[in-house]
Design a protein around this nucleic acid. Structure first.
Length: 146
RNA sequence: GCUAUCAGCCGGGUUAUCGUUCCAGUUUUUAACUGGAGAGGAAAGUCCGGACAGUGCAGGGCAACACACCGGGUAAUAACCGGUUAUUUGUCGCCUUCGACUUGCUUCCCGAUUAAAAUCGGGACAAGCACGGUGACAAAUAGAGAAAGUGCCACAGAAAAUUACCACCGCCGCAUUGUUAUACUUCGACAAGCUCAGUAUGACAAUGCGGCGGCCAGGGUGAAAACGUGAGGUAAGAGCUCACGGGUUUUUGCAGCAAUGCAUAAAUUGGGUAAACCUUGUGUACUGAAAUGCCACGUAUAUCAGCGCUUGAGGGCGGCCCGCCCAAUGCUGAAGGGUAGGCAGAUAGAUUUUGCCAGUAAUGGCAAAGCCAGAUAAAUGAUAACCGAACCCGCCUUCGCCAAGGCUACGGUGGGUGAACAGAAUCCGGCUUACAGGCUGAUAGCUUUU
RNA sequence: UGACUUAUAGUUCAAUGGACAAGAAUGCUUCACUACGGAUGAAGUGAUGAGGGUUCGAAUCCUUCUAAGUCAA
């Protein structure tokens, strides 16, 4: 199975709990990399305890990710859905390296991607920017480790 | 065939790889695999109406809100369907005069003004154009009451609603002037008088001023001026009367279920505004799925302030009053503390598709077949290739036109662009708004052929 | 998702229950004053958010959109 290298993005890998999201925005750290703003946080074992372990039963994924687009810049629901789908697609195909690092260090991370641009992007743009973001997240995780 | 308007309908497809939600099945049941299903005509706006849920459900009055031609239809609706009336717009036809409507140039007449002309207002006439009128058709919008009452109608104008002003006319009074009759002679003229002149009184006429009355006909304005035009009539005028017309209300007859239309007769001549207040009639409990019920987890039955405990705080009671009922470890507020997970609601229903029948239609009835999204930081996607409706450009062919230079329908071929508006969130019905392109139908116009 | 509110000069506000010239402050531009600057004085600067309707006449009344904002278990 691990040799097969699937690129999935199931329910368990998405950020769904209102409580963890509130905690993330309250206590998490963030950086901006146009056109994204990324908020991340290492969940405390005690605080996020029982629910978290129940949901991530497989233990093969150590990231929970959320995606959002502001209603202020994109009035139409069609445009917001389009951008969120592009972000999800590019994240899905590139998240594996970050997961490997977290696997090695036995850590979990909660990440939230917010799109801050003004125009509807191409898939290529989103994909390239997402690679940059993933690289930076890897650096951050390594630095924290060190 | 083309154009315009209106109405209805459709609104990309295939393959590959990777992924997502739900359901069913299988297995080695912390998971994976297989199969199936997975946005719209507007899912949008939330402008109306319901279903459903919770609270409430002695009663009366006031207030508030909504609606208002007629008929039909519906679970329900002012927002549907059909008809009707009015207004506006568009297309086409007719007319330009006998007329209530409309308009400028040229000619004539009348009136106002003026020293005169010019100018302004009204009327007549003839011709052309614009404008306008009228009829048919289509579309859009609107629909109780202005004759119950109140308010408002800037500027301009005499006046903005039943009334005043100017002007006009009648009567009375006063003043002045003129004519005439009678009487008189203080002062005068002279031809010495029954003359002229002067004074007084009376009559008539004109002018001016004042009063009383007639009066809505004239008064350049204005969006709108007290029915229009003509004639009679009058002191002057006036629907005061008459003729021809316009409007309103009512009677009768015919058509229609009705609104209403046509004809007839009588009365009447009234400004507009109710998307100003209002009057009349009809209707309306309030709150909305973050409703609501259940399960799990957790906290503070603590603190402070106010009121009240049968002499009644408060609540039912929603905006108010009367009235009735309930009411004590209570009610209200402040600052804080906790939770923010799951299930139901929630997808089998005013249901979908097809066919037939009734109806102009909205809609209704019957039969058969079917189950057709159900997410919750929120699925239905990404990438690539091909096909593609439609559009643009080039070339070829030739029907047709032709001034022989060319233009060009249809067809063929090559290249390019490559689907618009837009994403369910409890569910339905209607409306509104957005929408590339295409199809169908109706109406109107133009053109061609028969 | 549901229930609501508001849109007037660059900015903050008037006008309002219908009609006058759509105004005030401030800002900006120009000129004057000053050796220069400030202060002061003068002048200039508007699609009443958009479309349609009612009316003789809409910033105002009715209606449909657009934008911004508020509330909630």
């Amino acid at each position: 199975m691990e040799n097969k290298q699937r690129y999935t993005l199931g329910k368990t890998e998405r950020l769904k709990s209102r409580k963890t999201i509130d905690g993330l925005f309250k206590n998490g750290k963030s950086f901006s990399l146009f056109p994204f703003r990324v908020v991340y946080r290492y969940p405390e074992a005690s605080a996020s305890g029982p629910l978290q372990t129940e949901n991530t039963g497989s233990r093969s994924f150590r990231i929970q990710a959320g995606f959002n687009v502001s209603k202020r810049y994109f009035k139409k629901a069609v445009d917001r859905n389009r951008i969120k789908r592009l972000m999800k697609e590019s994240y899905r195909l590139q998240k594996q390296p970050l997961n490997d690092i977290l696997e090695a260090t036995e850590k979990k991370i909660v990440v939230f991607f917010i799109f801050t641009g003004n125009e509807i992007p191409d898939y290529k743009q989103v994909f390239e920017k997402m690679t940059d973001v993933i690289k930076r997240l890897q650096k951050i995780v390594n630095a924290k480790e060190a």
